[in-house]
Amino acid sequence: MAEMLISLEKLNKTYKSGGSDVAALRDVSLGISRGEAVAVMGPSGSGKSTLLSIIGGLNPPTEGKVIIDEIDLYNLNREKRADFRREYLGFVFQQFQLIPYLTAVENTMLPLTTTRYPSREKREMAMQALERVGLETKCNRLPNQLSGGEQERVAIARAIVNAPPLVLADEPTGNLDTRTAREIMELFRSLNASGLTVLMVTHNPENIKYMNRAITMEDGKLVDDAGNLRAVGGSCFDRSESAGGLR
């Protein structure tokens, strides 16, 4: 049995809106094992992104616990959670969110900026990450000199540069054409195959073909969990079989 990486216990999140409380998450409990690739599906406003931000240590829940690698995330203070994100998490955002005045390699190095690695080592780590996403030849280009797909690859390189156990992705293919989106999803699949746990919020049903588990949310509730349909993180992952299984 795979080791549990993420454990969510009765998560509730309520926002104030126009004087009334709006529930973004209601009693969400979930376990994700190390090496899983999980798609979070659901309509807009269902609480997917809120769930992702809470798991990412950015957004404290109103109630409940988030335990990642046996660490109770919201028992840590704000600054310790920042340290946690640096060491345990990689983020891939919908609109790439690269720093416009930094080159591809500098953007990739960003999570290493506040670490104690020597400069040369930071650069080597960033180059290795760029190599994994196939962008080592464009390492000195600024974001505006790269295509959307290339920018997404830089964002993925940045997410994996410090070798975190978990990558959180929010609509990573939302701004890409179909062909580029497939390439990016292939990349996620190969990263997952190497042992990385991926949790991805997506609207696109095509994307779940590249995942080995899909959960569905509606009105802040977890309404469907396709479960661990097969061995996780293995190279035996088959796209058509996976898609069928999830459906």
Binding site: G56, L58, R78, E79, A82, D83, F84, R85, R86, E87, L89, F91, F93, Q97, I99, L110, P111, T113, T114, R158
Partner: peptide
């Protein structure tokens, strides 16, 4: 604002 948000999300402390 957004850039600072990225810094914070990828592990910059407030002091950084």
């Amino acid at each position: 604002t957004r850039e600072i948000g990225i810094f914070r999300a990828i592990g910059f402390r407030g002091s950084h």
